[in-house]
Nucleic acid binder design. Structure first.
Lengths: 339, 339
DNA sequence: TACAAATTTGCATACGTTTGCAAAGTCGGA
DNA sequence: TCCGACTTTGCAAACGTATGCAAATTTGTA
């Protein structure tokens, strides 16, 4: 009957060895004879012993805990990423300590302090930007940070994003090839690299076709803002016949609003999103969107982070992963379209 | 310039007091003179000292970490709950360590072991059932557990759910009053208390009106299963004119499928869900559904859990929270309907 | 068989806190 | 002014593990 609080001492006593021996048996790198390993394992099994990760963390300085800072979970993309990240890290013996935050900069300061208190081995920020000052703090404390789905100008931190510039350009090509005349953009939050890059790629892309967006509005990655923006666009003298929306979450709001106005999609107007969250494939929206390959992004995030944890001399890297445009029913498809 | 790894020793040295004094200043209950408090705070500020929670956890046995076990994050209800839980717990100085699991029982065993390794102060399981054996293990280890959105027959554990029986009954009343003739139920997973209770409440409710469900199919809280179930239902000789679906997540699938079949909602058939996730309010679905008051459920969860943590003698309690039926456009509304 | 090299083992210490205990200090009232 | 009651303080021992070091044991080689 395995009971509470059994320590390496107890195991040592039962196995007739020293506490150090027990420790060594449970420490991957350490040396112990086959005989000791056997005795100790047997005793440990019998008592139901498992090493205390907290005590271990104290002495090694490694907690095997990764801090995850996340802002909003209402955009389906993030829970999905969280789930995948947790699975991948669990498989490697790490766990995720969650910190939620409204996207206020001052708040992040506090949160990073708390993270450092817990001696997390690494930090993943999802949809959250880090000030340069904060970057510096983490670097000095030797805690690797990976920004997930957000970039940063300085070379200080690792980041994993999709190829937002290329993605924006692809959408531009697609909409231009579709023969749309007035193409508007409800952009992702201008305060985020992700939002800016998609917008820039999009405008660049249009320019190549001699076009320019009929309007660009900051949607702030927010549903209500996107709804208001859509209303404004459609109220104008020359409403758009296509809208590229900065992410799927807003695109759904846009589609709801357009239908509210009695418009047909894509008959009257095309809508293209960004992310390809599962909901985009559901019948009610059937949204044409540029996929962010969440699996590969998660994989890259974990690899980079663990790499930096295991080898502190490793340099931060900025990883961009390209995703395809997923053709569905919310936007007119050009004849002979090839991506 | 606050730097890495400053300990209470360093602060003590600078402040000219003993290390214990520093500890006492940072320990809420302890006694220290105003003069010491001042000296220590000043020194701590200057060095950028913050107590190490791991060391604290070692000695007190309290980690201020709550383990959260969660199965699937694709049903919007759970990320939302997670976010709220995290916020509420953070406000109380606790943090969430996430454990994801496919819903396999054997897996849960391992996960609970890991949780106990980390000496979590409490456990919240969301949409996950606990075996009686496991319940026993936690009880013996003195770790309080609250099951969120899932109940259990034995009296061993606390649980917080909505009033699923009453909810199911309310939906039955509503659909019966709407004059529907053949009412089917695509139920939540029969392996979950939540799914069973809603189904039972629903059948009881119909019985009161002298009705019986035209069909009951286990949808397993799964989108694909729900789609298949819907197809089966509509393929039958006497297809239903109303479907009560065990949760919103499946209800969306049902609506997509019905529309695919060219049916009009609620003209040809009414659909009612359960949860009232944000998506239910969006234009594309506009789903009539029974609300699970997530805020109050989270509040109750946190209160119960922290209560048990702070007072170990407290008994587990089973809390049920009633929610209203939210009337929207997916189901015919009876004249003069009052809940 | 003997001896050097390599491996295994135990001892003791460290990690950064909290806390029981006893000594020292503070305060008020007679 | 003196004494008891109460508060504050420092000392030292925990908490459960990892690890450097030196002693002990095993292994390999001539």
């Amino acid at each position: 009957m395995p009971d509470t609080r059994v320590t390496s001492q107890d195991v040592a006593r039962l196995a007739g060895v020293s506490q150090s021996a027990v420790s060594r048996v449970f420490t991957p790198g350490a040396s112990a004879s086959a005989a000791t390993v056997d005795k100790v394992k047997r005793a440990a099994e019998q008592l139901g012993y498992r090493p205390n990760p907290l005590a271990r963390a104290m002495i090694t300085g490694k907690s095997r805990i990764i801090g995850l800072v996340v802002a909003y979970l209402d955009n389906q993309f993030y829970p999905l990423a969280l789930e995948r990240l947790s699975n991948a890290l669990q498989a490697k013996g790490y766990h995720i300590l969650v910190f939620t935050t409204p996207n206020r900069a001052d708040n992040i300061d506090k949160i990073v302090s708390e993270l450092m208190d817990y001696r997390v081995d690494g930090i993943i920020t999802a949809s959250v930007a880090m000030s340069n000052e904060l970057t510096e703090t983490c670097a000095r404390a030797g805690i690797p940070v990976v920004m997930f789905n957000r970039g940063q100008d300085g070379a200080g931190l690792s980041s994993v994003t999709s190829a937002n510039l290329i993605g924006g350009r692809t959408v531009a090509d697609f909409l231009a090839a579709g023969g749309h005349q007035r193409i508007a953009h409800i952009a992702g939050w201008a305060g985020s690299s992700t939002g800016r890059d998609r917008a820039r790629g999009f405008e660049d892309g249009l320019a190549r076709h001699g076009l320019t967006p009929s309007a660009v509005i900051d949607g702030r990655f927010d549903r209500d803002t996107a709804i208001a923006a859509t209303r404004d666009l459609m109220d104008s003298e020359t409403p758009p016949d296509a809208i590229f929306v900065g992410n799927d979450h807003m695109a759904f709001a846009v589609m709801d609003t357009l239908r509210d106005l009695g418009l047909s999609i894509p008959g009257d107007i095309s809508v293209v999103g960004y992310d390809d969250v599962p909901l985009a494939a559901w019948g009610a929206y059937d949204l044409t969107t540029l996929r962010q390959p969440v699996n590969r992004m998660v994989e890259a995030t974990v690899t980079t982070l663990l790499g930096q944890i295991e080898d502190a001399s490793k340099h931060p890297e900025k990883i961009e992963i390209e995703g395809p445009l997923i053709l569905r029913g919310s936007a007119r498809i050009p004849k002979d379209w090839t991506p």
